[in-house]
Simulated scan of single mutants.
Amino acid sequence: MSNVTLERNPSVLFIESDPVLAHQVSLDLKESGYEPVLATDSKTGLDKAIELQPALIIIDRMLAGESGIELCAQLRTKGNRAPVVLLMARDTIEDRVACLEAGADDYFLKPYRSEDFLRLVRIYLQPETSPTEQLRFGDLVLELATRRALRNGRTIELTMKEFELLKFLMEHPREVLTRDQILENVWGYDFMGESNVIEVYIRYLRLKIEDETQKRLIQTVRGVGYVLRET
């Protein structure tokens, strides 16, 4: 009898009440080498997320009976740390802030486009780096394998997008990065319309890595962008 263990493809839980969209997304995920798991309502989605521990969770914001944002908040309350992407039909400041506050890592705007969607999925399911690889700036350390930060020995848990943003800043210390550079390198896919999404994520990063007793590291360069440097 063979002792070889077959490695499973990364599982993606898709919580969507529209059967047509659910079918299309499932086909796209399978063709791209992922293992889709479907749920049509929030309760089933929550149960499957807890039972299966998928590598990525995608939730439609407009679920019947309960919003995707409420479901995302429940997942985080129960300790689920898998990346969560919300599908949204509109892009407003209120929606983006609500996504972040619920614990979502990102969002994808409808209408559904296979190429853009799969590009986003690949960002979150890319292979892990070496367990020992780190970035350092002053007393701030970013562990690339665990996707967490440490400052003065204090562990800081980051969402996937917070990690990617901080990583980009730490890869270019003391270099002023424009908003366009950040959008292109951190989001990595077509970003439609004028958005303050960077400002929202910068604010959340500052709340996590900077307290009243520590130096501010992420500096705003008005009219240009941001820079990682000590004052």
Rank of each mutant, 00 (worst) to 15 (best):
V186Y: 05
V97N: 08
I57C: 03
E194D: 13
Q214F: 01
W187I: 13
W187R: 08
L6T: 13
L205K: 06
E210L: 00
I93Y: 12
F168G: 00
D139A: 10
L100R: 11
D180C: 05
E212K: 15
R216D: 01
G138R: 09
L207H: 13
G65A: 03
L109H: 09
N9A: 13
D41P: 06
V224L: 08
Q24G: 00
V176G: 01
R136Q: 11
L100F: 07
Q24P: 01
Y189H: 12
E35G: 02
V20A: 08
E212C: 05
R8I: 01
I93L: 12
G68V: 12
E212Y: 08
N196A: 11
P173G: 10
S130T: 07
L169Y: 06
I50K: 13
A104T: 07
D139I: 01
V200R: 01
R136E: 04
A149R: 11
L169G: 10
F137P: 06
G33C: 02
L109P: 07
R136K: 09
M62V: 09
I209W: 05
E164D: 15
V141T: 14
D60K: 11
L144N: 08
N9Y: 03
P131T: 05
Q214T: 15
R136G: 00
P131S: 09
I15T: 09
G193R: 08
G138Y: 06
E7T: 13
K215D: 14
T132C: 04
T231K: 14
G138F: 04
R147S: 10
L125V: 08
A102R: 03
N196L: 10
E51S: 09
A145Q: 13
Y204N: 06
L142E: 09
E184M: 03
R8F: 01
G153T: 13
M192C: 02
L183T: 14
L207M: 13
V200Q: 06
